[in-house]
Amino acid sequence: MTTPTTLPDPGGSESEHPAGAPDAAPPDLPTAAPPRWRVVTRGAGTVWANRKARLGLLVLAFFVLVAVLAPVIAPYGPTANDFARGAGPSAAHPFGTTAAGEDVLSQVVFGARISLLVGFVAGALSTLVAVLVGLSWGYVRGPLAEVVNFVTNLFLVIPGLPLMIVIAAYLQNSGLDMIIFVVVLTGWAWGARVLRSQTQSLRGRDFVTAAQFSGERSWRVVFREILPNMTSIIASSFFGAATAAIIAESGLSFLGLGDTTQVSWGTMLFWAQNSNALLTGQWVLLLAPGLCIALLATSLSLVNFGVDGLSNPRLREGSGR
């Protein structure tokens, strides 16, 4: 989905109609697919056309596949602990085993599920909160906006990780839902601010005023006129939030604030740290989950390069600028 209003094509989109013939109809564009789908496929095409984004999508697809097919790919169960303890890499255990006697490869494979789940669910939820807050905050004027401004700034200035630790420690319910809740609570503010400023700039556009003249109610102006024009920013905000969520989940788990019996990349790092894996020479135990976290986060950031190109044609690769 693009925002065609932002920048004109360098090719000069005005040239599409012959100026000489008054009101001559421009040639019909193919109308095979309904407009909405065409927009989606064209957007996907733009993201795919970006080399970085393509690499990101491939890496992301790899992790999604691993997560979905985990039971098929993993040689053993993630919590099966009847192997030799702290063994090095071997044919039976390519990444070795943990101090508790679990297969590291299987844990990495199953760990992808938690990271992706938390990443996408927490990313989606915090984007949802950011959209609701950002759009209404950007659209209304007056004292309410000031209140929202204060609350958002509060969440922006409080350092994220300490806040997360405090909330997680306070809640003491160390399930995945708690982690998602904490990540959403600390992660929505940035997106809300970005979306608010975009809403404010769109609010002054003629088509928004025109919608008000058409008798549209406020919520309809916000969600049917303004929101669709911000799709690319929302998408990019989602990928950013998902990246942050994946890293936050790993961090919380690594600190032992998550459910330490769950197998995730963060808890793997937690247990590896607990068993002094580095001192015993089992660096794979730290490297494998760490690298996976880094790769997954990188892939999402790479996808964002392509998403940027949706809203700003000048950022598209090969546009020669």
């Binding site: 989905m1 003629d206 088509f207 025109a210 058409s214």
Partner: peptide
């Protein structure tokens, strides 16, 4: 009201029919 800039006064994502149906 009829606006000055016809390029800015129509939401680029809505069809003509939608734009006219609303009022």
């Amino acid at each position: 009201m009829v606006f000055q800039d016809p390029y800015a006064a129509l939401n680029p994502l809505h069809t003509v029919e939608y734009t006219l149906t609303r009022p």
